[in-house]
Design a protein around this nucleic acid. Structure first.
Length: 839
RNA sequence: GCCGCUGUGGCGAAAUGGCAGACGCACCGGACUUAAAAUCCGUUGGGAUUUACCUCCCGUGCCGGUUCGAGUCCGGCCAGCGGCACCA
């Protein structure tokens, strides 16, 4: 019946300290110019990826990154920084809307309830967020500025001459609507009938929606787009100096997919048109034996001959009915139809047939290719299937029955013959340019960002339509809030749910509102800026606050890899636009990025409800306390690594914290905790002093390197050293509590207070170590024979190499193992080791 | 298929090119206890040999290389995980 006796009373003091921090606003960070701001301190901005407050509540993956940043935040404060460490909610999104569709409950209510729950859960872990800076993307005072930034995009264009965004007023071309960074286009989109909305390419996985896994089909629709492709070059180049994991940089680069090549024009004599293709292998032009264009290509009707008309029409119909997934599944087998027309290869005047095939994509390059079957796998397959000619123009050709897609030496190529691929490429490009047949070009895989959704629970576009023309609202008309609705269901026609709000739509006698909403990514594109100045009603962030906190960007940004190409690319894009328009002071938002590794279930599998292996942080806190949760999440292994959860591991760190507790406290006869009788104001022994200083050094260096697991090991070693029956020096315990504070803030504060030390631990400055205490005058070094450990030698640290050698050679073990052998070499690394090479 | 990451005890892991396995878990043994829990102390990579202290051999996914010396550096594989996937 008795509740299990707790090894230490965390359940009593943890809530007390959380309340203390809240009432005292311990972690409130003033802005420059505000009361309590200290100009003399340097700034540090440490940021978490804010969560989507789902109905499920927090899972143990969240506190992993959040604990890491909290340790850094607390540590940096103790090291004398002004620390910005905020938290907020990325609260627009599909789950709340789906729930609303099912229950009729307004998404705002669901969202508020989830936010409250998330916040409570986070506060139970004792994070040192400045909650006065909390932001919520669904708050009109927040999305007012999301809409405002959208208007900046709408009212800007990318000037290639200056390589940056400028206000549309500087554009001198004919139609500004062709260059706006936010524009409307009729494009083939990923339409998800089940969700009743279109999705970005990034939100479609294997032809299914990322959310829900519903089928997605291609369908042309009128949509809002953001011209992110203008920034492709800068998004690649400006990645270089950032302190990000190389893998993530690479992921972004591959996503943007830059490739250099040439545009080549092919004449079609029969209709007088010219077909332009993109190729990265202009050196293989002599091997182009046919052409392929995408079935959707605009030129198809014009070039199809009467005899092929029916076949082409059939094929196009067949392709149009296929979803992307079907296409992928059928990718193994090439399909296509001959158009009946021929083009002329500009280098050799050869007539080559033009086909249509769905292996050529509309959206990339010009939607047309020159096929060089001898040197391209896909063209090879296609040529084999339809019996088209194959001509090798790069050698050495070892097997005529295989495609040769590598670099080599040009052959059968007239003026290119003998050149290596690397030489032939630029030579041919220059030749084409000189002849007026083509030009050097760079192509990107990145497409413009499909920015509209047919949903209710998102930011409405600050746009009205009049006489078929779109026009921006003025900033004073913001925020534009969504209308109240009873029915949140998709209309099924592609018309967004907002279309049901007939009053809201009517802007004036002649103008109606845009009914699409922005995607969930919108709010997270700039939230880190809002934290700098969260309540500003005049600007999205004041110049002064932005200048101070964003100087050199966010200093540390921690989050999961799943955002490598979505959020992190979008946010960089918006930031660059704001930079170009002089609203922010840095080219890049996030100076240093760290990805925490996923936490798996105890079975080593990804945590999921269906597997039933989900660990709930609330349960861990109830049973072991918040400090144990924090400590375990950090002790599991390196932050960036994927690692499985272990309940006995939690108990392990829990026992460690209990040992720290009993270092200071002991239980009396009545079972009450009182200060340990072993505590004393005693001098440290040399050994203890070394342990203290080595501990400070290790913990400090490990925190700086984000190696929290080894920092915790070091504190365990430290604690074990003083856990004995001997006297416990207060000075050593005091230092331990300071080192422990960023990791286990509740326990360290509680013990600090019970010991009657000054103020709180949070207010202490970080301890320094003294290197001289770490130097031993005697060291034990290994003695090896032929690289194998044979004995050890304890010597004075600065003993000359010659003397070490003598001592080593006199060791019985050494004599034994070198007996009968010739000494070839003796390697002495003073203070490190001796290696005797004998044979 | 391409790109990236990771392979070390029974488990999570640690190790500026220099004593492999710190720290923790689990296991085993001991102390305390009427007993249990908790706590404290100790053992624990594998093998051979020995009464015992000892001593020796093997060992960081596999094969090779550089080096006095490789978990660490280089080359070639293999496996697991993640990303991209007809991008011309």
């Amino acid at each position: 019946m008795n509740e299990k006796r707790k090894p230490y009373p965390y359940d009593q003091f943890e809530p007390r300290w959380q309340e203390f921090w809240e009432t005292n606003e311990t972690f409130k960070t003033p802005n420059p110019g505000e009361l309590g701001f200290d100009v003399s301190k340097p700034k540090y901005y440490v940021l978490d990826m804010f969560p989507y407050p789902s109905g499920e509540g927090l899972h143990v993956g969240h506190p992993e990154g959040y604990t890491a940043t909290d340790i850094i935040a607390r540590y940096k404060r103790m090291r004398g920084y002004n620390v910005l460490h905020p938290m907020g909610w990325d609260a627009f999104g599909l789950p709340a809307e789906q729930y609303a569709i099912k229950t009729g409950q307004h998404p705002r209510i669901t969202t508020e309830r989830n936010v409250t729950r998330f916040k409570k859960q986070l506060q139970r872990i004792g994070f040192s967020y400045d909650w006065s800076r909390e932001v919520n993307t669904t708050d009109p005072n927040y999305f007012k500025w999301t809409q405002w930034i959208f208007l900046k995009l709408y009212n800007s264009w990318f000037n290639p001459a200056t390589n940056q965004a400028e206000p549309v007023e500087t554009y001198t071309g004919t139609d500004v609507n062709n260059v706006r960074l936010a524009y409307v286009a009729e494009v083939p989109v990923n339409w998800c009938p089940e969700l009743g909305t279109v999705l970005a390419n990034e939100e479609v996985i294997d032809g299914k929606s990322e959310v829900g896994g519903f089928p997605v089909v291609r369908k042309p629709m009128r949509q809002w787009m953001l011209r992110i492709t203008s920034y492709a070059e800068r998004l690649i180049d400006e990645l270089d100096p950032l302190d990000w994991p190389e893998g993530i940089k690479l992921l972004q680069k591959n996503w943007i997919g830059k490739s250099e090549g040439a545009l080549v024009g092919f004449q079609i004599p029969d209709c007088g048109l010219r077909l332009s293709v993109f190729t990265t292998r202009p050196d293989t032009l002599f091997g182009a034996t046919y052409m392929v264009i995408a079935p959707e290509h605009a030129i198809v009707d014009a070039i199809t001959t009467p005899t092929q008309k029916e076949a082409v029409a059939d094929y196009r119909k067949q392709i149009a009915g296929k979803s992307d997934m079907d296409r992928t599944e059928l990718a193994k087998e090439k399909t296509g139809v001959f158009t009946g027309s021929y083009a002329v290869n500009p280098v050799n005047e050869e007539r080559i047939p033009i086909w249509i095939a769905d292996y050529v994509l509309t959206g990339y390059g010009t939607g047309a290719i020159m096929a060089v079957p001898a040197h391209d796998e896909r063209d090879w397959e296609f040529a084999k299937k339809f019996d088209l000619p194959i001509r090798f123009v790069v050698g050495p050709v070892e097997d005529e029955d295989k495609c040769f897609a590598l670099s080599g030496v040009a052959l059968n190529s007239k003026f290119l013959n003998g050149m290596t691929t690397a030489e032939a490429k630029p030579f041919m490009t220059t030749w084409l340019e000189d002849q007026g047949l083509g030009k050097r070009t760079i192509n990107y895989k990145l497409r413009d960002w499909l920015f509209s959704r047919q949903r209710y629970w998102g930011e409405p576009f600050p746009i009205v339509w009049e006489n078929g023309q779109h026009r921006a609202l003025t900033p004073v008309e913001l925020p534009l809030t969504p209308p109240p609705l009873d029915d949140f269901k998709p209309t099924g026609t592609g018309e967004p749910p907002l279309a049901r709000a007939t009053d809201w739509i009517r802007y004036s006698e002649t103008a109606t509102r845009e009914t699409n909403t922005m995607p969930q990514w919108a709010g997270s594109c700039w939230y880190y800026l809002r934290y700098c100045d969260p309540t500003n009603s005049e600007m999205f962030v004041s110049k002064e606050a932005e200048n101070y906190w964003m100087n050199n960007g966010v200093d540390l940004y921690v989050g999961g890899t799943e955002h490598a190409v979505l959020h992190l690319l979008y946010a960089r894009f918006w930031h660059k636009v704001l930079f170009d328009l002089s609203y922010v002071s840095t080219r890049e938002p996030f100076q240093k990025l760290v990805n925490q590794g996923m936490i798996l279930g105890t079975d080593g599998q990804k945590m999921s409800k269906s597997r039933g292996n989900v660990v709930n942080p609330d349960d861990i806190i109830s049973e072991y306390g918040a400090d144990s949760l924090r400590l375990y999440e950090m002790f599991m292994g390196p932050l960036e690594q994927v690692k499985p959860w272990s309940m006995s591991g939690v108990e392990g760190v829990h026992r460690f914290l209990a040992r720290v507790w009993r270092l200071v406290m002991e239980e009396n006869q009545e079972g009450q905790w009182e200060l340990s009788s072993l505590l004393g104001d005693v001098e440290l022994t040399n050994r203890q002093r070394k342990v203290v200083h080595a501990g400070i050094k290790k913990v400090t260096e490990d925190i700086d390197a984000l190696a929290f697991n080894t920092a915790i090991s070091a504190m365990m070693v430290y604690t074990n050293e003083f856990t004995g029956t001997g006297a416990r020096p207060l000075s050593a315990i005091r230092t331990l509590l300071v080192l422990l504070n960023p990791f286990a803030p509740h326990l360290s504060e509680e013990l600090w207070q019970r010991l009657g030390f000054d103020k709180t631990v949070s207010e202490q400055s970080w301890p320094e170590w003294n290197e001289t205490y770490l130097i031993e005058d005697e060291v034990e070094i290994p003695v090896q024979v032929n690289g194998k450990l044979r004995d050890r030698l304890t010597i004075k640290k600065d003993l000359p190499a010659a003397e070490i050698e003598l001592l080593a050679m006199a060791l019985p073990k050494v004599l034994e193992h070198t007996d009968g052998k010739t000494i070839r070499k003796i390697v002495v690394v003073p203070g490190k080791l001796v290696n005797i090479v004998a044979s």
